[in-house]
Amino acid sequence: MTATIQAHGLVKTYGRAWALDGLDLSAEQGTVLALLGPNGAGKTTAVRVLTTLVKPDEGSAELAGIDVLTRPEQARRNLGLSGQYAAVDEYLTGFENLVMIGRLYGLRRAQARDRAAELLEQFSLTDAAGKPSKDYSGGMRRRLDLAAALIVRPPVLVLDEPTTGLDPRSRIETWGVIRDLIASGTTLLLTTQYLEEADQLADKITVIDHGRVIAEGSATDLKARIGGERIELTLADPADLRLAARTVGSVTGTEVYSEAGSSTVTAPAPHGAESLMTALRELDTQNVRLLDLGLRRPTLDDVFLSLTGHSAEQAPTNDDSTPTKDNR
């Protein structure tokens, strides 16, 4: 089976800047692919190529079996796009926006109206349906924008940084909406600079930097690359350090890190929670008192740091998250 979303060797330069430098992507039908990278990594350019907005200098791309470059018209039929700048008309009401977009997808007026009402309901916007969208909150606009992408129930959905700039509550709301979409079998490409978002939503994560793929796999795969889970404990009494280290070491059978004079002990936990519980029981029988005990999982932030040498949040110079007319 060929992937529903695929791109091979995409290259795009703007002047002397390489936005994409041989990017490959693929997502199987019904899965969520997260494109993860810092600002300027090429996420937005990749999305613009896949959604027919930009022609790459080199490479090929397909959506649901249709070549994006040679048959953009047909590709657009299978595509819903929702960007980071809620792309709705601010003077039109929520309802009018959805009807307009439905009709531009080729629906008849009555069909478009029915579908608009249905989507407003689904996205809890019915009460605001008659208000111009400029009066909406950021989260509401983003929901309206998502709804607009779903009008024709396209098989491929592309969400460009769907939660950038949203407050935490709206972000979690948006994640809920996206989870529902995933459940309905849509193939989804999601770009994000939030590691947590990719971790929460994606089946597969493609980490890109400087327009190239630097790592690919499930969140678990990526985390495994920099080592698995670790037991981390903090002692109530630093005098127990040696005893605690020995105890933990006998349970995990791995090397234990404990710095003399400190009160923390860490060790790789090959059996995860099971190792943790055994260690806890052993420490208890030895009467070691603890302030804190936990199983620490590597975050995608750790992954990013180890892959790129810089943190994901640390934004490099050329910023592709705010495209202006000039740099598109």
């Binding site: 959604t51 027919t52 907005l53 018209e73 047909q74 657009r76 039929r77 595509l79 796009l81 960007g83 700048y85 809620a86 792309a87 709705v88 008309d89 977009i101 531009l104 997808y105 080729g106 607009a148 007319k325």
Partner: peptide
């Protein structure tokens, strides 16, 4: 219009 995100949406539609 050209400055707004809406144009990107229009351009991504089969219109």
């Amino acid at each position: 219009d050209m400055q707004k995100g809406l144009i990107d949406r229009f351009r991504s539609l089969p219109m």
